[in-house]
Protein backbone atom coordinates (compact mmCIF):
# COMPACT_ATOMS: atom_id res chain seq x y z
CA UNK A 1 0.00 0.00 0.00
CA UNK A 2 1.17 3.52 -0.67
CA UNK A 3 1.55 5.75 2.31
CA UNK A 4 -1.13 8.39 2.62
CA UNK A 5 0.12 11.78 1.44
CA UNK A 6 0.97 14.19 4.20
CA UNK A 7 -1.21 17.29 4.14
CA UNK A 8 0.56 20.54 3.34
CA UNK A 9 -0.72 23.28 5.58
CA UNK A 10 0.98 26.34 4.21
CA UNK A 11 3.36 27.15 1.44
CA UNK A 12 6.93 28.35 1.52
CA UNK A 13 8.90 28.57 -1.68
CA UNK A 14 12.33 29.32 -3.09
CA UNK A 15 13.30 31.22 -6.22
CA UNK A 16 16.39 30.43 -8.28
CA UNK A 17 17.85 32.26 -11.26
CA UNK A 18 18.38 29.71 -14.02
CA UNK A 19 19.08 31.93 -17.02
CA UNK A 20 18.87 35.49 -18.37
CA UNK A 21 15.08 35.33 -18.65
CA UNK A 22 14.02 32.40 -16.47
CA UNK A 23 13.36 31.62 -12.82
CA UNK A 24 12.68 28.34 -11.08
CA UNK A 25 10.03 28.59 -8.36
CA UNK A 26 10.67 25.68 -6.00
CA UNK A 27 7.74 24.61 -3.82
CA UNK A 28 8.72 21.12 -2.63
CA UNK A 29 11.70 18.78 -2.26
CA UNK A 30 10.05 15.41 -2.94
CA UNK A 31 7.60 13.82 -5.35
CA UNK A 32 4.14 13.48 -3.82
CA UNK A 33 0.68 13.54 -5.38
CA UNK A 34 -0.45 15.75 -2.50
CA UNK A 35 1.77 18.51 -3.94
CA UNK A 36 -0.05 18.79 -7.27
CA UNK A 37 -2.96 20.98 -6.03
CA UNK A 38 -0.33 23.50 -4.90
CA UNK A 39 1.60 23.30 -8.17
CA UNK A 40 -1.66 23.85 -10.10
CA UNK A 41 -2.63 26.78 -7.91
CA UNK A 42 0.81 28.35 -8.40
CA UNK A 43 0.52 27.75 -12.15
CA UNK A 44 -2.78 29.65 -12.27
CA UNK A 45 -1.57 32.47 -10.06
CA UNK A 46 1.66 32.97 -12.04
CA UNK A 47 -0.16 32.92 -15.40
CA UNK A 48 -2.57 35.54 -14.12
CA UNK A 49 0.10 37.79 -12.60
CA UNK A 50 2.53 37.68 -15.55
CA UNK A 51 -0.12 37.85 -18.28
CA UNK A 52 1.35 38.78 -21.66
CA UNK A 53 4.86 39.12 -20.25
CA UNK A 54 4.92 35.35 -19.71
CA UNK A 55 6.58 33.45 -22.57
CA UNK A 56 6.29 29.95 -21.09
CA UNK A 57 5.44 28.38 -17.74
CA UNK A 58 6.54 24.79 -17.17
CA UNK A 59 5.25 23.05 -14.03
CA UNK A 60 6.97 19.83 -12.98
CA UNK A 61 6.70 17.62 -9.84
CA UNK A 62 8.08 20.18 -7.34
CA UNK A 63 8.85 23.32 -9.37
CA UNK A 64 7.64 25.79 -11.99
CA UNK A 65 9.93 27.31 -14.63
CA UNK A 66 8.89 30.91 -15.34
CA UNK A 67 10.18 32.17 -18.71
CA UNK A 68 9.37 35.85 -19.11
CA UNK A 69 9.97 38.60 -21.67
CA UNK A 70 13.09 40.53 -20.59
CA UNK A 71 12.29 43.31 -23.05
CA UNK A 72 9.37 44.16 -20.75
CA UNK A 73 10.47 43.00 -17.30
CA UNK A 74 13.66 43.09 -15.22
CA UNK A 75 14.79 40.21 -13.03
CA UNK A 76 13.99 42.25 -9.92
CA UNK A 77 10.45 42.88 -11.14
CA UNK A 78 10.01 39.23 -12.09
CA UNK A 79 11.04 38.11 -8.59
CA UNK A 80 8.65 40.61 -7.06
CA UNK A 81 5.80 39.44 -9.29
CA UNK A 82 6.39 35.81 -8.29
CA UNK A 83 6.21 36.81 -4.64
CA UNK A 84 2.99 38.75 -5.20
CA UNK A 85 1.42 35.92 -7.20
CA UNK A 86 2.10 33.28 -4.56
CA UNK A 87 1.17 35.33 -1.51
CA UNK A 88 -1.67 33.66 0.41
CA UNK A 89 -1.92 30.85 -2.14
CA UNK A 90 -4.57 28.19 -1.51
CA UNK A 91 -4.25 24.73 -3.05
CA UNK A 92 -6.40 24.10 -6.11
CA UNK A 93 -9.33 21.77 -5.55
CA UNK A 94 -8.73 18.18 -6.61
CA UNK A 95 -11.32 18.78 -9.33
CA UNK A 96 -8.91 21.22 -11.01
CA UNK A 97 -7.26 18.38 -12.91
CA UNK A 98 -9.42 16.51 -15.41
CA UNK A 99 -10.03 12.75 -15.27
CA UNK A 100 -9.24 10.35 -18.07
CA UNK A 101 -9.89 6.64 -18.57
CA UNK A 102 -7.39 5.08 -20.94
CA UNK A 103 -8.28 1.69 -22.51
CA UNK A 104 -5.19 -0.50 -22.89
CA UNK A 105 -4.65 -3.83 -24.63
CA UNK A 106 -2.22 -5.56 -22.26
CA UNK A 107 -0.45 -8.25 -24.27
CA UNK A 108 3.05 -9.65 -24.67
CA UNK A 109 3.14 -8.86 -28.40
CA UNK A 110 2.79 -5.13 -27.82
CA UNK A 111 4.04 -5.17 -24.21
CA UNK A 112 7.10 -7.44 -24.04
CA UNK A 113 7.87 -6.73 -20.36
CA UNK A 114 4.45 -7.89 -19.13
CA UNK A 115 5.51 -11.53 -18.71
CA UNK A 116 8.95 -10.68 -17.38
CA UNK A 117 7.47 -8.59 -14.57
CA UNK A 118 4.86 -11.27 -13.79
CA UNK A 119 7.63 -13.88 -13.53
CA UNK A 120 9.69 -11.67 -11.26
CA UNK A 121 6.72 -11.21 -8.94
CA UNK A 122 5.70 -14.89 -9.16
CA UNK A 123 2.18 -13.97 -10.24
CA UNK A 124 0.26 -14.36 -13.50
CA UNK A 125 -0.02 -11.64 -16.12
CA UNK A 126 -3.59 -10.80 -15.12
CA UNK A 127 -2.36 -9.90 -11.65
CA UNK A 128 0.19 -7.44 -13.09
CA UNK A 129 -2.62 -5.88 -15.15
CA UNK A 130 -4.85 -5.75 -12.07
CA UNK A 131 -2.16 -3.88 -10.15
CA UNK A 132 -1.47 -1.41 -13.00
CA UNK A 133 -5.20 -0.67 -13.50
CA UNK A 134 -5.97 -0.67 -9.78
CA UNK A 135 -5.44 2.97 -8.96
CA UNK A 136 -5.67 6.53 -10.28
CA UNK A 137 -2.45 8.17 -11.40
CA UNK A 138 -1.50 11.81 -11.30
CA UNK A 139 0.15 13.55 -14.29
CA UNK A 140 3.12 15.23 -12.60
CA UNK A 141 4.66 16.82 -15.67
CA UNK A 142 4.68 16.68 -19.47
CA UNK A 143 7.91 16.33 -21.39
CA UNK A 144 10.13 13.95 -23.39
CA UNK A 145 7.83 14.45 -26.42
CA UNK A 146 4.65 16.49 -27.02
CA UNK A 147 1.77 15.11 -24.93
CA UNK A 148 3.94 12.60 -23.00
CA UNK A 149 2.92 12.69 -19.32
CA UNK A 150 5.02 11.39 -16.43
CA UNK A 151 2.46 9.76 -14.12
CA UNK A 152 2.53 8.07 -10.74
CA UNK A 153 2.82 6.51 -8.42
CA UNK A 154 2.45 2.88 -9.44
CA UNK A 155 2.19 0.19 -6.77
CA UNK A 156 5.55 -0.42 -5.14
CA UNK A 157 5.70 -4.11 -6.16
CA UNK A 158 5.53 -3.09 -9.85
CA UNK A 159 8.46 -0.67 -9.62
CA UNK A 160 10.97 -1.71 -12.30
CA UNK A 161 14.22 -0.06 -13.40
CA UNK A 162 14.49 1.30 -16.94
CA UNK A 163 15.80 -1.11 -19.62
CA UNK A 164 19.61 -1.29 -19.61
CA UNK A 165 19.58 -0.71 -23.36
CA UNK A 166 16.78 1.58 -24.56
CA UNK A 167 14.84 0.48 -27.65
CA UNK A 168 15.52 2.41 -30.87
CA UNK A 169 11.80 2.54 -31.65
CA UNK A 170 8.85 2.34 -29.31
CA UNK A 171 5.42 2.47 -30.98
CA UNK A 172 3.08 5.40 -30.33
CA UNK A 173 0.51 4.42 -27.68
CA UNK A 174 2.89 2.08 -25.84
CA UNK A 175 2.16 2.05 -22.11
CA UNK A 176 5.27 1.74 -19.98
CA UNK A 177 6.56 1.81 -16.43
CA UNK A 178 9.89 2.92 -14.95
CA UNK A 179 10.66 2.95 -11.25
CA UNK A 180 7.34 4.07 -9.69
CA UNK A 181 6.10 6.01 -12.69
CA UNK A 182 4.00 5.13 -15.72
CA UNK A 183 3.59 6.86 -19.08
CA UNK A 184 2.28 6.49 -22.62
CA UNK A 185 4.54 7.13 -25.62
CA UNK A 186 2.82 9.97 -27.45
CA UNK A 187 4.68 9.37 -30.69
CA UNK A 188 7.03 6.75 -32.09
CA UNK A 189 10.41 7.42 -30.49
CA UNK A 190 13.39 5.76 -28.83
CA UNK A 191 12.69 4.79 -25.22
CA UNK A 192 13.84 2.76 -22.23
CA UNK A 193 10.64 2.16 -20.25
CA UNK A 194 9.21 -1.33 -19.62
CA UNK A 195 6.29 -1.77 -22.02
CA UNK A 196 3.13 -3.54 -20.79
CA UNK A 197 0.58 -2.84 -23.52
CA UNK A 198 -0.78 -0.34 -26.00
CA UNK A 199 -3.63 2.16 -26.25
CA UNK A 200 -5.34 3.47 -29.39
CA UNK A 201 -5.95 6.86 -27.74
CA UNK A 202 -4.18 9.77 -29.48
CA UNK A 203 -2.28 11.76 -26.87
CA UNK A 204 -1.25 14.63 -29.13
CA UNK A 205 -3.46 15.67 -32.01
CA UNK A 206 -2.78 18.96 -33.75
CA UNK A 207 -6.29 19.01 -35.25
CA UNK A 208 -8.04 18.76 -31.89
CA UNK A 209 -9.03 21.83 -29.86
CA UNK A 210 -7.08 20.44 -26.91
CA UNK A 211 -4.00 19.33 -28.81
CA UNK A 212 -2.62 17.49 -25.77
CA UNK A 213 -5.03 15.07 -24.09
CA UNK A 214 -3.17 15.42 -20.80
CA UNK A 215 -2.24 18.52 -18.84
CA UNK A 216 -0.17 18.63 -15.67
CA UNK A 217 -2.36 17.76 -12.67
CA UNK A 218 -4.80 15.56 -14.62
CA UNK A 219 -5.83 12.18 -13.14
CA UNK A 220 -5.55 9.05 -15.25
CA UNK A 221 -6.85 5.52 -14.82
CA UNK A 222 -6.02 2.63 -17.15
CA UNK A 223 -8.53 -0.08 -18.00
CA UNK A 224 -7.82 -3.43 -19.62
CA UNK A 225 -9.54 -4.16 -22.94
CA UNK A 226 -9.52 -7.15 -25.31
CA UNK A 227 -7.62 -7.37 -28.57
CA UNK A 228 -10.96 -7.05 -30.40
CA UNK A 229 -11.91 -3.87 -28.57
CA UNK A 230 -8.43 -2.45 -29.21
CA UNK A 231 -8.78 -3.12 -32.96
CA UNK A 232 -12.28 -1.63 -32.94
CA UNK A 233 -10.83 1.55 -31.44
CA UNK A 234 -8.39 1.77 -34.34
CA UNK A 235 -5.42 0.22 -32.53
CA UNK A 236 -2.36 -1.02 -34.41
CA UNK A 237 -1.57 -4.64 -33.44
CA UNK A 238 1.89 -4.75 -35.01
CA UNK A 239 4.13 -6.40 -32.40
CA UNK A 240 6.54 -4.00 -30.68
CA UNK A 241 9.71 -5.85 -31.59
CA UNK A 242 8.90 -6.03 -35.32
CA UNK A 243 9.00 -2.26 -35.71
Amino acid sequence: MSRSPSPVLSLSFGMETVGMDALIVRLFDAIDEAHMPWILAADNALRERFGEVLIDLVPSYTTLLVHYDVARLSLGEARQWVGEALQGLEPASTAAGREHRIPVWYDDSVGPELTRIAERLGVDVDEVVRRHTGRDYCAFALGFSPGYAFMGMIEESLATPRLKTPRQKVAAGSVGIAERQTAIYSMRSPGGWNILGRTAVELFDRDRDEISLFRPGDRVRFESISREAFIEQGGDTTPLEER
Binding site: P59, S60, Y61, L65
Partner: peptide
Protein backbone atom coordinates in the same frame (compact mmCIF):
# COMPACT_ATOMS: atom_id res chain seq x y z
CA UNK B 1 17.52 15.50 -8.97
CA UNK B 2 13.80 15.71 -9.68
CA UNK B 3 13.16 16.77 -13.29
CA UNK B 4 12.33 20.43 -13.78
CA UNK B 5 11.78 22.87 -16.66
CA UNK B 6 14.91 23.66 -18.67
CA UNK B 7 15.68 27.11 -20.14
CA UNK B 8 17.44 27.73 -23.47
CA UNK B 9 21.22 27.39 -23.21
CA UNK B 10 21.14 25.37 -19.97
Amino acid sequence: MISEGIPLGA
